[in-house]
């Protein structure tokens, strides 16, 4: 009888300890992501925003442009739906960030209206070409925005993946366009 009780207490202790360590210890950041990213400063409709302003929050980061008709709306829908899948208190610690690589056509005000269509949790920002070039290098992607387009109907080549940043602003996952809201929410929960 006594032994049984001790076994019970011991397993309860093990269980609580397991719960505790699961909460505290985050997964390892894949090494190939450790040299990707860094702080940047861009313009939103509310003024200048630094990526480091989001410290303490999980950030879903996507680079695109508002004239992109297919993949950008699809990804922003996934981003918005993923955030909606979280509990209210979890949602408070998650933000979406949409960086336009097409500052010639995307003003911060236009981006505000554009991202608001998908979710109030997604903020639209952009900056000067030199700033965006520096970010592309830091964040290890390539993009092509025509310098002197003949018409306003030009296309921008941009990365197709979604970056997930932890509360310290480090890239912890890169998700491709096949990811569902459920996939994204699952990754976010690992880092909350």
């Amino acid at each position: 009888m006594r032994t049984l009780m001790w076994i019970g207490v011991f397993s309860l202790f093990l269980f609580l300890f397991g719960m505790f360590t699961m909460k505290v210890h985050k997964p390892e950041i894949p090494s190939y992501l450790k040299t990707t990213g860094g702080d940047f400063q861009l313009e939103s409709s509310q003024g200048t925003i630094k990526l480091s302003d989001f410290h303490g929050h999980i950030v879903l980061l996507y680079f695109g442009y508002s004239h992109c008709p297919d993949i950008c709306p699809a990804t922003l829908n996934v981003m918005a739906s993923a955030i909606r899948l979280l509990q209210k208190d979890e949602q408070n610690d998650v933000d979406g960030l949409f960086v336009s690589l097409d500052p010639a056509r995307d003003s911060p005000d236009k981006l505000k209206a554009y991202t608001a269509f998908f979710s109030p949790k997604i903020i639209g920002v952009t900056g000067k070409r030199e700033q965006l070039d520096a970010i592309a290098q830091q964040w290890r992607f390539t993009y092509v925005t025509p310098q002197h387009p003949k018409t306003t109907f030009y296309v921008v080549q941009h990365p197709n993946f979604l970056y997930v940043l932890n509360k310290e602003g480090h890239v912890v996952a890169l998700l491709d366009e096949k990811s569902t809201p459920e996939d994204v929410a699952k990754v976010v929960r690992l880092w909350l």
């Binding site: 508002s66 004239h67 992109c68 008709p69 297919d70 709306p73 236009k110 209206a113 554009y114 608001a116 269509f117 998908f118």
Partner: peptide, 11 residues
């Protein structure tokens, strides 16, 4: 795909 009202492109 219903585009955002500010958008002048759609797929």
């Amino acid at each position: 795909r219903l585009p955002p009202p500010v958008s002048d492109t759609a797929a």
